[in-house]
Design a protein around this nucleic acid. Structure first.
Lengths: 185, 185
DNA sequence: ATGTTAGGTTTCCTCAGGGAACCCGGCGAG
DNA sequence: CTCGCCGGGTTCCCTGAGGAAACCTAACAT
């Protein structure tokens, strides 16, 4: 929770991880996105301590990933729903699930299937290139500095944590040259 | 680390989360997959405590996600490389990064770009249906019980934690009726 | 008036994570 | 041949996050 200098870091993975890199958040989002939205239901379903659940939910609400809504006045009842920002975490869940399926499913097969309503078939989610639709792998991609990165040219760049940590080592660069100018492609 | 009854649970997300749901693992995998593979380099780059780094690495090796390799004999030097199982975590990283880019990139744009070597363009990773190639969203998919799930019919099913937790509350269902019959689409 | 349910909050305890120091084998330099 | 350094960890102590369980406050329901 406040292991969080990560949030300031020039790496979108680190930023996402700051929220998502904890034991429960992924499971909470899974539940909320699949219809388990009330406090008690979540607590039961996950077996999470109520204290921690409350903390996670309010963090997720702060972050704009969930909203707390009163869905009934008498008696007053609340639930948590995903915002668009929260719904867009779905690909992360799909990727985690796909990986878990591939490497941990028993002989019986995976515990759940995803039916794609568009084509009507049980699907396997793949990470694809938005342009050509081909699957993306470690082998067929490279990481390059982006416009928002304050990183030197040589740095491998999926996430230059070094940059944001440089306070701890001012022997390294503090040049930060006009944080725009990417290493023009 | 041993908050881990999760690993036994009938949900691939929970299984994946058991490994991946911690502050550092995603970042370690990011680094290893992008070429930061030695202990000291990882420790520096991440700013992680050496103790925890050692623990994470040996866990990842145990799990078959990384292998420890001697890449030079004199002086003896080791590094960590991703196995195929480890490389297949790439989609998870891409999904996290994409989400971070969409919601946390400053006005300057995202800190890094992914170039797809197949089509030569900077790409945006999308979670697509392996059959029809269309993007998968919360709205155009449903979750159904899979062959490996020991879950009742009504249960929403991306991850029935209840099943594995029912030891703790035998007041609830122990019926588990013919664990198949999905809520037919 | 008594109980129950939803939605939390509080208290106490334990153990994982951070920081920093320490350790060990293998060099390479003087 | 001794000194010191580097890579790759391990050990120690301390703090703080997470778990368990009890408690609290409406708002009904009987």
């Amino acid at each position: 929770m406040t292991r969080t200098p990560l949030a300031d870091v020039a790496c979108s993975i680190a930023r996402a991880t700051d929220l998502f890199g904890d034991a429960w958040t992924a499971l909470i989002m899974r539940d909320v996105l699949t219809g388990v939205t009330r406090f008690d239901d979540l607590a039961h379903d996950l077996g999470i301590s109520r204290k921690v659940l409350a903390a996670r939910l309010s963090r997720l609400v702060e972050e704009g990933v969930l909203i707390r809504e009163r869905y009934q006045e008498r008696p007053p009842r609340e639930h948590y729903r995903a915002t668009p920002k929260g719904e867009e975490l779905y690909p992360v869940l799909l990727a985690l699930m796909e990986w878990g399926d591939r490497w941990y499913a028993g002989p019986a097969g995976p515990p759940a299937r995803i039916r794609h309503l568009g084509c009507g078939r049980d699907t396997t989610p793949v990470s694809a290139c938005a342009h050509c639709g081909e699957p993306l792998t470690v082998g067929n991609t490279t990481q390059l500095p982006g416009p928002g990165g304050h990183t030197g040219p040589g740095t491998r760049v999926l996430g230059p944590l070094l940059a944001a940590r440089e306070d701890r080592r001012e022997d390294t660069r503090e040049d930060t040259p006009e944080a725009g100018r990417p290493a023009a492609v």
